[in-house]
């Protein structure tokens, strides 16, 4: 079995020694982010507003889902569109998309408040519908709005009731994380008058290949990591300087445990190591090619060393290559 160079600690050290930090769009001592390109077709960059992103880690393709247009677009590793289709199932509200290990496309559909997972092949042809089963009582009120597929499991998020459900590939219930109490306790610690305990909502949501869950709660100015043992850790401080949180949004983790957090207000993507140490940030508001406008969802292809950033202002998806010192 071929060993991934990124996983080798000495290679990481070499990268560290070799990398030189420069560029107006990067700050911090630990990373260098080079803007590569925008996701495009033959006419140029494709506009989109806060597209949902996911990476096919086998074929190195990036998938985007534009909810307003109900459109899925697929791009090759060079950022060129290779296929696109609009969803045809008119009976369901589709709120999110994720890509399976075999290249299948999974859609999170809601009709009457009941979530279901629709399976499409890579051409967008319906392959079936996965109904959730074995759910514990009181799950009727689970209104899922995010879906991630990793390692033969689906992770469904109900962002306002602060719950994350894990089911297997067949839709059979595995576990439920109720985060409300922990997050409300944290809110109470931040705010003795308990005002922030009202209206807590999860913003960004991601799961890495090891099953570690990441999410952000903007009003707490905090990002979270929930490991498979159920241990919840948080990090982040409010502020406008490097590494500080304004309105945090998208989040992702790579295979080295590095964590990427986008900030809508500061228009940056911040990078932290697995100990939550700030490594650097890049982007910054502007119209230069390496700048960002209100970044939201992010996706990381660690093996290719790329990070994809969806933005507002119909700006589309920017692609950066990261080098760690």
């Amino acid at each position: 079995m071929k060993k991934n160079a990124w996983n080798h600690p000495y290679c990481l050290t070499l990268f560290s020694l070799a990398a030189v930090l420069y560029g107006a769009g990067t700050a911090g001592a630990g990373i260098k982010a080079d803007f590569q390109y925008m996701l495009s077709d033959f006419s140029g960059p494709i506009p989109s507003q806060w597209a949902r992103l996911d990476v096919d880690r086998h074929f190195r393709e990036i998938y985007t889902f534009k909810r307003g247009e109900r459109q899925v677009q697929i791009f090759n590793e060079n950022g060129m569109e290779i296929f696109a289709f609009e969803l045809q199932d008119n009976a369901a509200m589709v709120t999110d998309m994720t890509v399976g290990d075999d290249g299948s496309i999974y859609l999170l559909a809601n009709r009457g408040g009941t979530p279901a997972i629709i399976t499409l092949d890579y051409r967008g042809e319906p392959q079936g519908r996965i109904e959730l089963s074995g759910l514990p009582p009181a799950m009727d009120a689970f209104h899922s709005d995010r879906l991630v597929h990793r390692n033969n499991s689906f992770y469904l998020l109900d962002s306002t009731s602060l719950r994350i459900m894990e089911v297997n590939d067949s839709g059979t219930f595995k576990t439920l994380h109720r985060l409300g109490v922990q997050l409300q306790n944290m809110a109470a610690e931040q705010d003795r008058e308990r005002k922030r305990t009202q209206g807590l909502e999860i913003g960004g949501f991601a799961v890495d290949d090891q099953g570690v869950i990441y999410f952000t709660v903007p009003v707490l100015f905090a990002a979270f990591r929930l490991n498979q043992a159920g241990i919840l850790e948080s990090f982040g401080r409010s502020g406008s300087g490097p590494g500080k949180f304004g309105v945090v949004s998208g989040i992702a983790g790579d295979e080295h445990g590095n964590i990427y957090v986008s900030d809508r207000l500061r228009s940056v993507v911040m990078v932290f190591d697995h100990n939550f140490e700030f490594l650097g940030e890049f982007g910054y508001r502007g119209h230069g090619e390496g700048n960002l406008i209100v970044p939201d969802d992010i996706a990381v292809d660690g093996k290719a060393g790329k990070i994809y950033v969806a933005q507002a202002a119909n700006r589309g998806v920017s692609v950066f290559r990261l080098v760690f010192q």
Binding site: V219, S238, G239, G246, V247, Y284, R285
Partner: peptide, 10 residues
């Protein structure tokens, strides 16, 4: 800090 950026990055 939720609305105002005290240290403008650009």
């Amino acid at each position: 800090n939720g609305c105002h950026v005290i240290h403008s990055s650009t």
